[in-house]
């Protein structure tokens, strides 16, 4: 794997924001057509398969590689306001403005209320693969992701995740 912290790279520096429409629509389809359990299974499938190169890099590189991944990740997302803080014991991602929620709202899209849960489901599954634990606090446009070593965070408290509400 190259030193670049993102495993899959594009020729342009940032993605096209309209793809957030498809992410939101995919969640709606899976949840309504196949049910919540299937939606969770889908996210965990991506976490363990598609994201395997990231998980392996995190496992090799420890918390510094978690931090460098998320910095590069949000640099490549259009819009948003995100700060990544790394210390020897944890990585905290402060999402002051989520680029996805902001673009969907600006575009007048009906956002699935459980949109923010996907970050917790995906994040926790990827963290577990790499020997870490992850919790999410907040949502609905701003939130905080915390990564620590495995066993150092409790299981995700669902009450800590906000639903997305219409503006």
């Amino acid at each position: 794997m190259p030193n670049f912290p993102l495993p899959y790279t594009d020729t342009k520096p940032q993605g096209a924001a309209d793809f957030y429409f498809a992410i939101n629509a995919t969640f709606r389809f899976l949840y309504e057509r196949l049910g919540r359990k299937a939606w969770i299974a889908y996210l965990e499938h991506l976490a363990r398969g598609y994201f395997r190169p990231v998980n392996q890099a995190w496992q090799r590189g420890g918390l510094p590689s978690v931090a460098s991944y998320w910095k590069a990740f949000f640099d490549a997302e259009p819009g948003g306001d995100v700060k990544v803080r790394a210390s020897p014991d944890e990585v905290v991602i402060e999402v002051r403005e989520c680029p996805a929620i902001a673009h969907l709202r600006r575009s007048g899209r009906a956002i699935v209320p459980y949109y923010c849960e996907h970050c917790a489901i995906l994040g926790a599954a990827r963290a577990a693969e790499a020997g870490f634990s992850m919790n999410l606090f907040g949502g609905n446009g701003s939130c905080r992701h915390v990564y620590r070593r495995a066993g150092e965070l409790p299981p995700q408290n669902p009450a800590d995740i906000k639903e997305v509400v219409p503006c």
């Binding site: 993102l6 899959y8 594009d10 940032q14 993605g15 096209a16 924001a17 309209d18 793809f19 957030y20 498809a22 992410i23 995919t26 196949l34 299937a38 889908y42 499938h45 991506l46 398969g49 598609y50 990740f73 490549a76 997302e77 259009p78 680029p99 996805a100 996907h118 970050c119 995906l122 994040g123």
Partner: peptide, 21 residues
């Protein structure tokens, strides 16, 4: 978080997941 930078990568994986299901 699923981002838009590498959207096409997991979009393509989604097709396979759906077809298997």
């Amino acid at each position: 978080m699923l981002g838009c930078y590498d959207f096409c990568g997991y979009y393509e994986a989604t097709f396979q997941w759906l077809e298997e299901r």
